[in-house]
Design a protein around this nucleic acid. Structure first.
Lengths: 182, 182
DNA sequence: CGCAACATGTAAGCGGTTACATGATTAC
DNA sequence: GTAATCATGTAACCGCTTACATGTTGCG
């Protein structure tokens, strides 16, 4: 599943422009599927060329024409096919954790800074999740509540772990800045 | 931070071959930083060309020469530089969650299958974490215990959430296979 | 006066994945 | 017999990121 498929899925909720979808990617999808304009616009162009979405151009003053996309019946069928995989992946790529593996080569200050900045990012996400639950509509699909809830559960667990166990990274003497002796 | 840097970091624990590092990537690093031979071997070649690691070739019968890499003082300095970033990223890319966002377009059977397979993958990781704590040595850096512990905390929270809230994805009637009516 | 929001796109580049290529040994 | 383990590598490909390009409206 790629950005194209996710765009197609988002369009089952109603028509939208690339700009609209980007906001969606930032808010509700941000914690598990990032995408920038550089992927979204080409994705929509490709979906359109394949007949999975139709496009309505709305003229505007001073801005480029707003292009509003709507999913077609073909697109709906295609999406259903894409959703029919029993083992969808869930991948993490964490420079943060990779860095923490080598905490014993860093100064306590460096480690503490990294830990603190991770916790603030988690807090930003947690705030976003609360805002989502406040502003979302009654017809918001269960799946969205589910993914936001899961995001909250996972982020809270991570924050708790960082607060309770972060200190083990600061306990032992650092060896990184001393010449090798063995 | 890329595969090259992580390889460099792994080599601070002692010399190793590309094949050895791959096993490391699969076990302790598997849950947050995946890498295959196609990234590891070119990474080691590049590190070697830049003088960050030295290489000792050990002849073998029937197999290619075993190439054992050791980090140099230059490499150690380089690693320390790479570790000196205050905001290392932590990115998730989840086809699983993307799929669950559209659970209302799928049949309950499809959703249940996806949920079950995710839980078994979590169980595989949890088993791996237990094995790590059993087999690891006394001199294993704190950072490794920390990342495995965090992995366990996060995976457990995810599993619990899936078990307690998965049902909300099965509650409402599916609409995906009916023609659009609005 | 400057910044954020609105609005769409292109193109180069990079890093990682996947498939291919080779082949002995050992355990089931 | 056949699968797994040991052992290294190349090359094509793919998709995403980043930087670039353009321009108005409205708010503080």
């Amino acid at each position: 599943m790629d950005v194209k498929t996710v765009c197609l899925g988002m369009l089952t909720d109603g028509e939208a422009s690339g700009y609209d979808l980007k906001k969606h990617f930032e808010s509700s999808f941000g914690h598990f599927f990032a995408a920038g304009y550089g992927s979204i616009y080409p994705a929509l162009a490709s979906l359109s060329a394949q007949g999975y979405v139709s496009c309505k151009e709305i003229p505007q003053q001073g801005k480029p024409d707003r292009k509003v996309y709507r999913i077609t019946e073909d697109g709906r069928r295609r999406l259903l096919q894409e959703l029919d995989h029993p083992n969808p992946s869930h991948k993490v790529r964490s420079e943060f954790l990779a860095t923490m593996c080598f905490a014993h080569l860093m100064t306590p200050d460096q480690v503490q800074t990294v830990l603190d900045s991770r916790i603030s990012e988690i807090d930003r996400y947690l705030t976003m999740f609360d805002e989502f639950e406040c502003t979302c509509m009654e017809q918001t699909p269960n799946g969205m509540h589910f993914t936001v809830g899961l995001g909250r559960a996972v982020m809270s667990a991570m924050k708790k772990y960082l607060e309770e166990h972060g200190h083990i990274l600061l306990e032992n003497p650092q060896i990184g800045n001393r010449p090798a002796t063995g």
